Simulated assay, not measured.
Amino acid sequence: MHSGRVRVLVVDDSLVMRSLLRIVLASDPAIELAGMAADGLSALDAVERLKPDLVLLDIEMPRMNGLEMLTQLRQRRHPVKVIMCSTLTRRGAAITLEALARGANDYVAKPTAQHGTADAVASLTRELLPRVRALFTSGHSTAVRPQIGSRPGAVTMVVIGVSTGGPAALETFLPQLPADFPVPVVIAQHMPRLFTSLLAERLDRVCHLKVCEAMAGERIAAGHIYLAQGDQHLQLTRAAFRHGLVFRMLPPVPGDFCRPSVDLLFRSAAEVCGEGVAGVVLTGMGTDGVQGCRAICASGGQVIVQDPETSAVWGMPGAVAEAGLAHRILPLHTMAAELVRMCMPSSAFAVKKASA
């Protein structure tokens, strides 16, 4: 954990929300409330005066909104970490995704108006505090087991698991895949339903491949990147009356905090694709993906994970590496070229040269 207590500045024009966040932050002895502000303009001054480690940032505020404040912080190269506090509306989700692209580290959904005070505090405690801890926990492990040897083989399916820091990582990584990338790509990104549909739209605008949300019963095709729908689990299964693979959707059950599940997606890919699976674990907190990567390795597939230096949080990729399940640990900017090398050996040199 970050040395000393994590000092947090709360920026929100709602007195109710500021009060809720005060209660939640006070419940963790590793966190200190550094101050509060009701708009982005006064918050910029507070950042300079108080030197917080973290800003909890509302989106809609008078004088200067959260997106404008975040832009100012990043233009000034201020090192403070930022978690956006977002409403679960289409507009709130769209602005939050833009904030993540502009340098916000993570986001948390605000409680809805239907929540009572106790429920709102419980929801924020469950969603916010682990994110704060993850952002201030060192991602550099000293106990990473040696990488296992690469197993050459024809890759027929790429599956990706990602969480905290995922939207920005995906917007960097996926546009580097060429238009003739020959195998399907399926992604489990921990996000609510509304966010994943908007993320698919954003990615589709910048990628050479078609990006869309996966639909139940849809046949999986090369030339596509499929994003699992938020709050649903996604599996790959063989089509009943025709050749090929299709998607199967599973509703979450109480206690499923990783939605969609990377483990479930990866295990299903290993089952139906065997040694043809390439599993990719990008930035994210927690350990979702370890069991799925174990299944991929057991089936003869390959696993690559993002390195700690380029990960927002080296939880998920670090857990896979520490379990000895990673064939390669790579920085984000080289991962697309590595996938091209695995899937299109004759094109690898051109892609590496273009990305150099």
Rank of each mutant, 00 (worst) to 15 (best):
I304N: 01
F195W: 10
F349Q: 15
R49W: 11
G284R: 02
H140S: 11
S19L: 09
L209H: 10
S355V: 06
A354H: 14
R49S: 14
L194V: 15
G284Y: 04
C293F: 02
M335Q: 03
T283R: 06
R205W: 14
V55Q: 05
H233V: 10
G40V: 06
S163L: 00
R267A: 11
V185D: 01
P146C: 05
H115M: 14
L128T: 01
G274V: 02
V183A: 01
D53Y: 06
A216K: 07
P331S: 10
L209N: 08
G318M: 00
S141W: 08
R22M: 13
T334Y: 06
D307K: 01
V262N: 02
Q235M: 15
A93Q: 15
T142E: 15
L339N: 01
L50S: 12
I95Y: 05
M249I: 12
Q235E: 15
Q302S: 09
V11W: 05
F195N: 11
D119N: 10
R76A: 15
M1T: 11
I220F: 02
R126K: 09
A38K: 08
D53E: 12
F247H: 03
A350H: 11
M316R: 03
M61R: 03
R102N: 15
P29Y: 03
R74K: 13
I31P: 03
M157N: 08
G139T: 05
R238S: 11
I31A: 02
A26P: 01
L50Q: 12
S299I: 02
M17C: 07
V313K: 00
A321R: 00
A228R: 02
